[in-house]
Nucleic acid binder design. Structure first.
Length: 111
DNA sequence: CTCTTGACTGGTT
DNA sequence: GAACCAGCCAAGA
């Protein structure tokens, strides 16, 4: 079912370990839709309407920038939560992005 | 049904 | 290296 795509997105986001973060493209690629990264972002937009809130703050663009911070309760919520998990954020951009980057394609691996 | 917009990405210029 | 262009898919007007 097509709905699984959204379900998978939320599922992967929930699997993101604390103190880590990933990108929309990484999730999309893991789901086999690398070109549908925009849909991942759209899914995040829908996430706030879900009963089970997901750690969308752990999902940023490929540059590690808090591109969707403005969609949270407040533009500061995303940064606050990330720093609360030990992720350093400088000027809306995650520091040591390469280090905190959690790639489902590698961490979860393909079965 | 058509057109626009968007929490993206990769390739060109 | 910044700016611009094209591709992809879903939702809202």
């Amino acid at each position: 079912m097509t709905s699984d795509f959204y379900t998978n997105i939320f599922d992967v986001v929930r699997l993101i370990p604390t103190g880590r973060a990933t990108s929309y493209g990484a999730i999309a690629k893991y789901l086999g839709a690398a070109k549908s990264s925009r849909v991942v972002g759209w899914a995040m937009n829908q996430s706030h309407t879900l009963k089970d809130k997901i750690p969308a703050h752990r999902v940023v663009n490929r540059l590690g920038m808090l591109s969707g911070k403005m969609h949270f309760e407040t533009p500061n919520t995303m940064k606050e939560r990330l720093e609360s998990e030990g992720i350093k954020v400088k000027k809306d951009q995650i520091k040591n992005w390469k280090t905190v980057f959690w790639d489902p394609n590698i961490e979860l691996d393909f079965d």
